[in-house]
């Protein structure tokens, strides 16, 4: 912490939180509002395409909105904290995708391949 390069890294981070962020924040706010209104409109007005396509669109918009929030509101970039925040974020993103995707994938196939039982104790009861 007492070395010069580290102080420099701190300063770079301070810049992101301060001067450069106001315009980014405005743009981010506008994008976030659009990316929230569109999926709600698609589902509530039932104007969208077939349910499968609507689902694909709202998931895609959610992913984009998450990126917008992380970049414009959490100010994640390659420079802050010497790149460690980005590294931690990417690692977490991998684990999140594995946890959610893997669980849903495995359990979906378990449910589909399970023999139906009287009493409905296996698989999802609909």
């Amino acid at each position: 912490m007492s070395t010069e390069p580290y102080d420099h890294a701190l300063h770079a981070h301070g810049d992101t939180m301060g001067h450069g962020s106001r315009r980014g924040h405005r743009i981010g706010s506008l994008l976030a509002i659009i990316l929230t209104v569109v999926p709600f409109w698609l589902v509530m007005s039932q104007q969208g395409p077939a349910p499968g396509w609507t689902a694909a669109v709202i998931f895609a918009l959610a992913l984009v909105q998450i990126v917008v929030h992380v970049v414009c509101f959490l100010h994640l970039d390659t420079r802050s904290e010497g790149g460690w925040t980005l590294l931690a974020f990417l690692f977490t993103a991998v684990i999140v995708v594995l946890t959610i995707g893997g669980s849903v994938w495995v359990m979906f196939h378990l449910n589909t391949n399970m023999m139906p039982m009287p009493g409905g104790m296996t698989g999802p009861v609909r």
Partner: peptide, 12 residues
């Protein structure tokens, strides 16, 4: 103007 004097570790 150094907003996190010593705060870098806290932020991370």
């Amino acid at each position: 103007d150094h907003d996190h004097g010593g705060g870098g570790a806290t932020i991370l």
